[in-house]
């Protein structure tokens, strides 16, 4: 800071403190409520005095709801999203930066455009395709008259049906489709000295060898950052998993959490259990951020010291 007076420092600290309180308040409510018994909650409502019932509440959630199974679903889906995304993003960026592709710029532009078309916008189409991923193939066969020809020749009407609804792949695939990761890797590759790939070629390393021996080790921080971002994205997404999984066994934890509050409006919800569920759902992403914090920052700043 340019000015370094005490009063300014103090003001800054107060503003920061207010901000921190504002952010922490709901978390504290969640945490405290999760430690209370249903009875004391019914008597006192929300309070700031922690109780001693956390373990019991965890037991209730663990034994009477689908949340454990749904946590597993979330882990599987979020990991799939993160891993596949890292793989696709890295390889596409590699192709765009290190090969002279005709129309490479246009291709990269199209990759970026995916960011302007979020899943929420193409929700219904996505659902239709997920309900039958052969739909585009059927449409193409129709369009070129192949369906008609085959039908007149053999009497068989081609209409393929493959649904990925209610599968892990169906849950993960639409969440993968955006260009953020490709952009991240592309920008990072462009900060690397251009002579690096030339030096590797002079040393006799082909493209795959260069990718494996040099690019991947140098991109570790970017992998970590993208993995965490995509994992969190997969973990917290709500709308798509809500419609793509129709049975509780296939739903993700965030969807399951919302289902913990009873449908019957007259009933008082078991808030301590719900808050415990919320804690359980948050623990994994929190732990991930805590562990990877350093890498995330390094992976997103794009410049190596």
């Amino acid at each position: 800071m340019i000015e370094n007076t005490k009063s300014l420092d103090r003001t800054a600290n107060v503003i920061l403190a207010v901000g921190v309180l504002y952010i922490l308040f709901p978390l504290v409510i969640t945490l405290v409520t999760a430690t209370q018994s249903f009875e004391s909650f019914l008597q006192n409502g929300f309070s700031f005095i922690p109780g001693t019932y956390l373990l019991e509440n965890i037991q209730i959630v663990w034994e009477t709801t689908q949340l454990p199974r749904q946590l597993l679903n979330s882990i599987i889906v979020a990991t799939m999203v993160a891993l596949i995304k890292c793989g696709i993003a890295f390889t596409t960026a590699f192709a765009i930066v290190y090969f002279r592709i005709r129309y490479g710029g246009i291709l990269f532009g199209m990759v970026l455009v995916t960011n302007l078309m979020p899943l929420d916008l193409r929700f219904i189409t996505t659902y239709q395709v997920a309900a039958n991923i052969m739909m585009p193939v059927n449409a193409l066969l129709d369009f070129f008259g192949i369906t008609y020809i085959v039908q007149t020749l053999t009497g068989y009407r081609m209409n393929f049906q493959v649904s990925v609804l209610n599968t892990y792949f169906g849950l993960a695939a639409p969440l993968l489709a955006n260009g953020t990761g490709t952009f991240l890797f592309r920008q990072y590759f462009r900060t690397l000295p251009a002579d690096l790939s030339k030096a590797a070629r002079m040393d006799g390393a082909g493209p795959m060898r260069f990718l494996w021996d040099i690019l991947i080790p140098l991109s570790r921080a970017n992998f970590a950052a993208l993995f965490v971002l995509m994992f969190l994205g997969g973990w917290t997404s709500y709308l798509w998993p809500l419609v793509a999984a129709s049975t509780p066994e296939m739903q993700t934890a965030v969807v399951g959490l919302a289902r913990l509050s009873p449908g019957d409006p007259g009933q008082i919800p078991h808030y301590p259990a719900i808050m415990t569920g919320a804690l359980m759902v948050s623990v994994i992403p929190l732990a991930m951020i805590a562990l990877m914090q350093r890498h995330i920052v390094r992976g997103l700043t794009l410049t190596e010291k």
């Binding site: 000295p193 002579d195 030339k198 030096a199 070629r201 002079m202 021996d213 040099i214 140098l218």
Partner: peptide, 18 residues
């Protein structure tokens, strides 16, 4: 390049940082 028996020194070194 590897078959030509040439080796090259670059302006900004181009060493593998890791």
């Amino acid at each position: 390049p590897k078959d030509r028996g040439c080796a090259m020194v670059f302006q900004n070194y181009a060493l593998y940082p890791h």
